[in-house]
Amino acid sequence: MLILKTHYHPEVDSLENKSVFTRLATRSIALQGANILLLYTERYEDYSLPGGGLDLGEDKTEGMIRELKEETGARDIKNIQPFGAYEEYRPWHKPGYDIQHMVSYCYTCDINTELGETNLESYEIKNGMKAIWVNIHEAIAHNNKTMTTSNKKGMSIERETFLLKRIAEQLI
Rank of each mutant, 00 (worst) to 15 (best):
T6D: 07
T6L: 05
T6Q: 12
T6V: 14
V12K: 02
S14Y: 07
S14W: 07
E16D: 12
K18W: 04
F21I: 10
R23F: 08
L24H: 14
A25G: 11
T26P: 01
R27Q: 13
R27D: 03
L31I: 10
G33K: 04
I36N: 01
T41D: 07
E42V: 03
R43M: 10
Y44A: 11
E45V: 08
E45T: 08
D46G: 13
Y47H: 10
G52W: 04
G52C: 07
L54G: 01
D55F: 11
G57E: 05
G57I: 06
E58P: 05
G63W: 00
G63R: 00
I65W: 03
I65N: 07
E67M: 09
E67H: 09
E71W: 09
A74V: 07
D76N: 15
P82R: 05
F83G: 00
G84R: 01
E87W: 07
E87F: 01
E88Y: 09
E88M: 13
P91L: 06
K94Q: 13
G96S: 09
D98T: 10
V103G: 01
V103D: 05
Y105V: 01
D110F: 00
E114L: 07
E114I: 07
L115I: 10
E117W: 05
E117V: 12
T118Y: 04
N119Y: 13
L120E: 06
E121N: 12
E121G: 10
N127T: 01
N127I: 01
G128W: 06
K130H: 15
A131L: 07
A131N: 05
W133C: 00
W133A: 00
I136W: 02
E138F: 03
N144W: 02
T146N: 07
T146I: 08
T148K: 13
